[in-house]
Design a protein around this nucleic acid. Structure first.
Lengths: 66, 66
DNA sequence: ACTTTTTGTAAAGTTTATTTTACTTTTTGA
DNA sequence: TCAAAAAGTAAAATAAACTTTACAAAAAGT
């Protein structure tokens, strides 16, 4: 799973910490997702989608390895 | 998190087992998600979205408790 | 150059997703 | 109505998400 969270965050002009607060997770969780360390739950993905005003598919994309 | 997986599955005319096979998870995982026992990963949600030809938001919806 | 903010990293611990196996109940179809 | 298929349930085990704390590196602002 790839994601363009970093870009969306830049568009919204938010730090990792600010985004984490808005979504209700720790800063490290945001960092880990951006770094591709793990895949978030669907709840988290939907919260990000709501915040970004875009569908989940717009910033989370499946890869052949998934 | 609510979901209408059961409906989407009915539209596609698939059993829990068939859907599980197509997505690459166990039948119990499909059942548990339909029963609201737990929330799937974003990878799983995206695979379902691809299969159903609909965005994730079409069959997974946040609740006030999320 | 110095200070502050932001980001990266890492380890230990907790919670939650997912699998496997197995058994029961319900639904479907002949 | 009987048999087969599908769905519900449950417990134990494993993997993965997420938190907390804490510190190092990098970036940004003055």
């Amino acid at each position: 799973m790839k994601n363009s969270l970093k870009v969306e965050r830049a568009i919204m002009d938010l730090t990792q910490g600010e985004l984490a607060d808005k979504i209700g997770v720790s800063r490290q969780t945001i960092h880990a997702i951006e770094a591709g360390k793990y895949v978030p739950s669907t709840v988290l993905a939907l919260k990000l989608a709501r915040l970004f005003g875009k569908p989940v598919e717009a910033f989370f994309m499946l890869e052949s390895t998934d």
